[in-house]
Design a protein around this nucleic acid. Structure first.
Length: 493
RNA sequence: GGCAUCGUGGCCGAGUGGCUAGGCACAGCUCUGCAAAAGCUUGUACAGCGGUUCGAAUCCGCUCGAUGCCUCCA
């Protein structure tokens, strides 16, 4: 059961920029934190990619037999629009726009987030904490940082003193930046009078009278700064130092850099052993973004109601499409690419269906053990799902050959292959066979059997006009007939 | 402007100093009443220019191009 003892996993650590052998801090246990969404609008597909990537990683850890505590937060306190004094809380802004309570906005989009992830077959995290539920913890961290002399209060707001921090720590080590360079390249900023240095960031912001989301603090009514919640929630549930911190590439700087700074300033310890970053999903070659409108929502893909794609695609196909690229690579969404993935997905699913029906023999032409290890090797190499999938298609080929009687498989190997296909496809990649559950009721199957029977009768009588009519009209309905050695089967597209 | 990543055959997308991932599309063949499905075969691609090397698409340098971050963003 404890597979991790025999499989050596390597992960790409953004902190070192290299692949490292994965060794959890506590043997057999993993603490993993992933930055969740800000719930002020619906999640778009780009957001989903990150969560799907880490879901796959979570699934693989579990499969390897680790006990994983997976924490993924909900940012419901909003972030400042910018660091300038006229900054406005995003959620409060949206609430005003929609004439509802801020927490109503939060509730609405949290529900949407959960519904969407469920469609993509994501496992729920172990803990899903909210920022507003951890205001006290955040205030405590601010106090500690002030005590250490690395933060200062100005007019009801508290800022992190990056220059001071950099004296004894290394600000910028995650993103490969140097503070001196950053200071030298500072853009012209306005209304920065409160901060000692433009690189300083807010730990606590004073709430203006019109600001709705506000909490009392030692520095007056206000709201927590942009990066603090993740530090508070990750260390609360995973400890001062934990194994994995993940998130989207775009959070590397400044968000994750600031998290490191806050944690090191308050505890003196580096908070995270392995930093993992999932890369962007692009649309038309550009990053998807809520603010620029260059995005597509999962519901639009599944319904087909959009101007980008020629047809609807199921959540499973979209997930498969994403799994065909490495999580650290930029992936561009296009109709052509999705179509190709859909066909591949269908072929894979059909092979899995056919696998169960294969006849067995006294020997195998397919080395299951070697194949299985190749699949694990792919996953062990920084979760290389594209390579894993290429091996899965290797199995597909063998399944089809066995089905045609050109190769054989033993009972034991067949069971093993069935088991491992399920493990890799369903348990680890998280890909479900969505077609299997659709339109396969007893009644429907009966009708199909009848039609296939009639067609074969016509063929036997060389009445090809009738047989082709049945076939063509079924094709028009999206039902494909497949004449095999042992009779005719069908699939629904 | 600074930092970072990337540029692979028609499309998508892996990858390693020498042994041509894979998916989709295309072509030929087998099968088929004809198709489809399935199988087999073929495609000598690694932005450009230099260099290191017995050998580089993979290492180094330069050029060009793209993207991300530097302001909220997965």
């Amino acid at each position: 059961m404890q597979l991790y003892k025999s499989q050596q996993l390597r992960v790409h650590n953004s902190l070192s920029g290299t692949k490292e052998v994965f060794q959890p801090i506590n043997d057999g246990h993993i603490g993993m934190y992933v930055c969740g969404p800000t719930v002020y609008s619906n999640v778009h597909l780009g957001n989903c990619r990150t969560f799907i990537s880490f879901d796959m990683i979570f699934r693989y850890f579990k499969h390897l037999g680790y006990k994983v505590r997976y924490v993924r937060n909900i940012t419901d306190a909003g972030h400042l629009e910018n660091d300038a004094d006229d900054g406005e809380d995003k959620i409060a802004k949206k609430a005003k726009l929609e004439q509802i309570e801020p927490m109503e906005v939060v509730q609405r989009y949290t529900v949407d987030f959960h519904n969407t992830l469920q469609k993509f077959n994501l496992l729920p995290p172990s803990i899903e904490p909210t920022a507003t539920g951890h205001i006290i913890e955040q205030i405590e961290i601010i106090k500690e940082i002030i005590d250490k002399g690395i933060a200062y209060e100005v007019n009801g707001s508290v800022y992190f003193d990056v220059v001071k921090f950099n004296e004894k720590h290394e600000y910028g080590k995650l993103s490969g930046r140097k503070l001196e360079d950053m200071i030298a390249n500072t853009r012209e900023l306005t209304a920065q009078d409160e901060k000692r240095n433009p690189q300083d960031f807010a730990l606590w912001k004073k709430a203006e009278p019109q600001h709705i989301m506000r909490w009392p603090s030692p520095w007056g009514d206000g709201f927590p700064g942009w990066h603090l919640e993740c530090t508070a929630m990750s260390t609360k549930y995973l400890g001062d130092t934990f194994d994995i911190h993940g998130g989207g590439m775009d959070l590397k700087f400044p968000h994750h850099e600031c998290e490191i700074a806050q944690a090191e300033a308050s505890t003196g310890k580096s908070p995270v052993k392995y930093w993992l970053h999932a890369n962007m999903l692009t649309l038309n070659g550009k990053k998807m973004s809520k603010s620029t409108g260059n995005n597509i929502y999962p519901s639009e893909i599944m319904s087909g109601e959009n101007d980008i794609l020629s047809k609807p695609y199921s959540a499973a196909v979209v997930r498969f499409f994403m799994m065909q690229a490495h999580y650290t690579s930029i992936l561009d969404l296009s109709d052509e690419a999705l179509q190709a993935s859909e066909k591949g997905y269908n072929r894979l699913m059909e092979a899995i269906d056919n696998l169960a029906k294969l006849e067995t023999a006294s020997n195998s032409d397919f080395d299951i053990k070697a194949w299985q290890q190749k699949c694990y090797d792919a996953m062990n190499d920084d979760f290389n799902t594209p390579i894993l999938i290429s091996h899965l298609f290797d199995a597909v080929k063998h399944i089809n050959l066995i089905k045609e009687g050109k190769e054989t498989i033993t009972e034991t190997d067949k069971n093993q292959l069935q088991n491992m296909m399920a493990v890799f496809v369903h348990d680890i990649l998280g890909i479900e066979n969505q077609a299997a559950s659709e339109d396969k009721s007893q009644t429907f199957s009966g009708v199909m059997e009848l039609l296939i029977g009639l067609r074969n009768e016509a063929r036997a009588n060389k009445d090809f006009a009738t047989s082709d009519k049945i076939r063509d009209e079924l094709t028009a309905l999206g039902i494909q007939l497949k004449d095999g050695k042992d009779g005719t089967t069908f699939s629904i597209n």
